[in-house]
Structures are given as C-alpha cells and as structure tokens.
Design a protein around this nucleic acid. Sequence first.
DNA 1: TTACGGTTATGAAAATCCTGGTAGTGGAAG
DNA 2: CTTCCACTACCAGGATTTTCATAACCGTAA
Lengths: 225, 225
Amino acid sequence: MKILVVEDEPKLASFVKKGLEEQSHEVDVAFDGQIGRTMALSNNYDVIVLDVNVPKMNGFDIALSLRSEHIKTPILMLTAMGSLDNKVAGFEAGADDYLVKPFEFRELLARLRALSKRSIDTSSPSSLLKVADLELDLNEKIARRDGKRIELTAKEFALLEYLMRNRGRVVSRVDIAEKVWDIHFDTGTNVIDVYVNFLRKKIDKDFPVKLIHTVIGMGYMLKEE
Amino acid sequence: MKILVVEDEPKLASFVKKGLEEQSHEVDVAFDGQIGRTMALSNNYDVIVLDVNVPKMNGFDIALSLRSEHIKTPILMLTAMGSLDNKVAGFEAGADDYLVKPFEFRELLARLRALSKRSIDTSSPSSLLKVADLELDLNEKIARRDGKRIELTAKEFALLEYLMRNRGRVVSRVDIAEKVWDIHFDTGTNVIDVYVNFLRKKIDKDFPVKLIHTVIGMGYMLKEE
DNA sequence: TTACGGTTATGAAAATCCTGGTAGTGGAAG
DNA sequence: CTTCCACTACCAGGATTTTCATAACCGTAA
C-alpha cells in the first residue's frame, strides 16, 4: 500500500520508510507539515503516519485540514510518551489511531495493517457523492438532481451527506442524532423528522422517483426505488 | 453506541462500564470468554472491548472466532504492559486497535469513538444473516426468502434477527422476552406467541419448508428442517 | 380411544406509537 | 431591522403493538 509519513526527525523517518519498503509498501516522506498536507491532498494514500510535532504545521492542524477537505484516508498519529491531551486532541482532529514514541516497528506495521483493512469507500471522488440522479457536491456544498441545482442549509447538507454515505442502509434516528447532531441521548426532539421533511421538499417532491424512504419504527434510508 | 466489554477483573469492568454509561453509551459486560463470544455473536454491537486474558476463551481466540463468522464489529483489545507479541498476535487475529493497561479512560473513549467512526463496510456478509433460503438484510431491514422480498415491522424484524442469530438453538420465551421485548419478569402476556405467528405468516406459510419450530414447553427454534 | 389439563395458535379489537406536515419562535447574521 | 436557519410544539392519520378471548393442539392418564 501507499503510505505517507510526515515526520521531521530524519533518522526516524528513514527507519520507518526503510522498514515499510522492506514490506513492499510504497512510502513518501514529508519533513514538514505544509509539504505533508499538500502531498496528502494531492495524492491518494492508503494511510498516513503523522507526527504531532512537525515544523510549519502541526499534526492536529493537518488532520483537521484533511478532514475538512473530506479526505478520509486513515491517519495514525505519533506522539511522545505521556501526552494524553495530545492523543485526545488528535482523535478529535480526526486521527484514527495513535502510537506513542518510542515504538517497535512491528507494532507500527500491525496498526497500519489494521487501519487499512477498514476500508473507506473510495469509489466516488471525494468531492462528489451520487445516488441515482442525485449528486451532492462537497466542494460547492450544494445538491443537484437531474442536473438541477439545489441549495441546502448547513444542517440539510450534513443530513443528506450522512444519508448518501450510508446509501442502501437504514439509518436510525439514534444514528443520525449522534452523527449529524452530536446528540448522544434521547432528548425527545423531532428535529430529525423535521429535517427529513425539509430534504424531501427539496430533493424528492418535484421528481418522479422518491429517494428518501421511511422504514417505520427503524429510521430512514436513501436509495433508488 | 452499544458496546460489549469482555473483561474478568470486576473493578476494571465496572469502572469502564460506568464511565461509558456516563457518556450515554449502552454497555454489556461479559466476565469470561465463552459468554463474551456468545454475546458478540447474538447481539449487534458497535464496538467490542476485549481483554486478552479472560477465562475460558482468550481474546485472540474470540477475535478469530468472530472474524471467521464474518463479524466485522471493530475490536479494541486490552493487554498488559510490554506484550508486543500479544499486540501483533491480536492484530493478526482481527483486532483493530490495542490499548495497554493501565490506561486513562479518556484515551479509551477517544479510541472507541475513532473506531466507531470508521463506517461499517455495508457490502460485508455480516450485514446479511442466512438460514437455508431465508435471508435477513441488516442494511435494508427486510427479509428475503427464495429471493422474494418480505417487509417486516420493527418488532417482527427484531424477533427474526434474534432467532436467526441463535439458529439451531431453542430459545425460550423468557430469553425472547428479555432480549427482544426488554421484559424481565413474567407479565403473563402471550405477545411472543402472537409475533411468532406473525412471522410464520410472512416467512413460512407460502413456502414448503418450515423454518420456525416450536419446542413444546421450551420455546422456539429456527432451523432448516 | 377418549378425556383432560396445559400450552400454543389465531383473529379481532383496543391501545399506543410513529410519522408527515405545518406553524411559530428565538437567535444569529447581514 | 430584516431575513433566514434551526428547532420546538402540535395535530391528524396511519401503522404497529398489545390485549383478550377462543380455538386448536399436544401429551399423558385412565
């Protein structure tokens, strides 16, 4: 697999690169954060190894930047011993795993393998989601159906994105509450039903084929009939 | 989210359970490996926290067993300090992450959140349960028999899921009452028989082979005759 | 073979829940 | 100040769940 390593310590970077190449992986190395970020945006890596402390842009900001650009590549962050606050901050910035320096190469390898096994849907360009004749443009933050432009509010967009990323799968209100609204317990709100109604008005009402389906007692699903 | 913790140290298990429930997660605990494995097979967890050393079946064997049954639930393994061989063995058995004891609860929480964010591969077999020519699609929340689509209500679906996950095993009404209806004492209701009847009408009536079997005085079992 | 007690199956109705849709409100942004 | 977004509250209709009564079935004893 294709791995980006963002690490400014030359000896460590070299050691990791060499070890991974010996396992037949293709490795790019960036020695500062800005170059690392640019490389991550411009290339299709299977996984990114990202030190927290690199010059010019730290690991958290890189992770945040990548995630805000909808780059879903798994990120394994490296940090020095004892930085729990760093770890938590890293996870919150979008990292998927953490490894504390110094580490054994075998553990790094095992974790990278575990990360890459959890496959990300890379079948669509990261900037466009499609279901039937509906498209969600992640760059312009709009939808299009049958070529027609549809303006969405931020919450409408987030909900539609979630439904489209889970196309063909019933997602419960609890799922939606957690992932779109960051609500983790039953607040008794009907806001999800309200917003599904808003989306229906914008993307289903004027079209013959309804894409948003209710599964009574379970949730909603987006699919072509 | 729904979390299974397989951990035999009562104090640690209690500490983790309490902490996660305070974050509005739903937590089940198993104190030995065999119970843990059975619970993992019979329920739909979002993530599993699995100690390496538990009685009756160790963490590696449990992970191997779940993965061989196509259970893709993310697994975070717990191990004692310094066991690199254990970590590598755990990743090879199918674990997705590792945490070394002792650990800070905040790190556990952050790692669990990172794991569950990695969306489930919906094309995986674990989204489909099969018994003979009956299929239960966990994504679309429908059944299919001999290719024919069968719509189920939420309760019907939950009951069928429970029966299918326990295929070949007689499950008592008490089991079903607890797991599907969350009833923990004898209410004198026959609603379970009513619903078994509903399922029979939908999935057995029009087909030559009856899959739902009554074991008089004991309960019900789903199996090919 | 028949009768009986216990268990399960089943139909209908009542009770409850769920959802679609809309109106109104508060707060933030322009 | 106005507009828009996000959310709450509510109602009606439909769907689901549960209850209840009764029929049917099963196993065992006489």
